[in-house]
Each structure stands twice: as structure tokens, then as C-alpha cells.
């Protein structure tokens, strides 16, 4: 698979896919998108890199421990739920506020976004951990 064409195309595509996945993540909750979809998209981009360049080459540049992403995401998502308890509400109670920022205009800040980021990290971590774990086997 490691032909020049694949390498060149994936170099061009991966940043775009990652941007798209982040935009999907933040579009979530009210519009189509969200943590799971974005996470799958991100994981597919990284696995494209793994396929195009080979695991060893990528690891020689920087070796990610994807299971840490999984743990961090799970921790973030569940702590978001506990955050509502601190304010005297039930677990996972969400709230939002409208904030006007200088360049972006009115932005809706949702506490569920934190939960979605957690899901995003969990999906990325688990998929890529599985992918790398099977790929490393000779």
C-alpha cells in the first residue's frame, strides 16, 4: 500500500479530514454530528496514515499511547456528569449560555460539549488502540 500516490494523497487529505472531524464534533448536539461521528472520522484519518506510511515509520516519529486517550476521554465524560452534582442538580444535567465573542459573534456554550469531547477521545482511543494492537502483530 505504501506507494507514492497513497502517501501524497494521504498527506493532503489527513489535515482536511481532521479539521472536518473537529467541525463535526462542535456541530453536534443540535445539528447532525457529535463526538462519536467525529471520533470515527479522526480515527479513520490516523489509520489512513498508518496504512500509507507503515506503523514503524509513524512510531519512529512519535509513538502515541492511544489507551491514554481512552482513559482521559472516559474520565472527562464521567466527570462532566459529576459536575452537575456539584451544583446540586442530578447527574448529567446540562446547561447552556449564549456568549458573544469579538470575532465569532454569538456562540452557544453547552456543558454537553465537554461530554462530547470525552466521547470523541474515547472513540479515537479505543479504535486506534485496537487498530495499532492488531497492526503491530507480525
Amino acid at each position: 500500500m505504501t506507494t507514492l500516490i497513497t502517501k501524497t494523497v494521504s498527506k493532503a487529505c489527513v489535515p482536511i479530514i481532521i479539521l472536518f472531524s473537529v467541525s463535526l464534533l462542535f456541530a453536534g448536539h443540535d445539528l447532525p454530528g457529535g463526538g462519536f461521528i467525529g471520533g470515527v472520522m479522526f480515527a479513520s484519518a490516523i489509520s489512513l496514515l498508518y496504512v500509507a506510511f507503515g506503523l514503524k515509520y509513524i512510531d519512529s516519529i512519535y509513538s502515541y499511547q492511544w489507551d491514554k486517550w481512552f482513559g482521559a476521554g472516559l474520565l472527562l465524560a464521567s466527570l462532566t456528569g459529576f459536575g452537575a452534582m456539584l451544583f446540586g442538580y442530578n447527574f448529567l444535567r446540562s446547561l447552556y449560555m449564549l456568549v458573544s465573542l469579538p470575532l465569532l459573534g454569538d456562540v452557544k456554550l453547552l456543558s454537553t460539549t465537554l461530554f462530547d469531547i470525552g466521547v470523541y477521545l474515547v472513540v479515537i482511543g479505543s479504535l486506534l488502540y485496537v487498530f495499532k494492537g492488531t497492526g503491530e502483530d507480525e
Binding site: G71, A72, L74, G81, M85, F91
Partner: peptide, 22 residues
């Protein structure tokens, strides 16, 4: 009132913590 949820959420949080500090 919060105990039923904590019984479910606490093990999940500790699953995450134990992944991070393997």
C-alpha cells in the same frame, strides 16, 4: 438521592483512572 447514580458512575470513573495509571 444521588447514591444510585454514584453506584454506577464511580466504577466508570475509576475504570478511566486505572487506564491512565496502569
Amino acid at each position: 438521592q444521588q447514591v444510585p447514580m454514584i453506584l454506577i458512575a464511580l466504577p466508570i470513573i475509576f475504570a478511566a483512572i486505572t487506564v491512565l495509571f496502569r
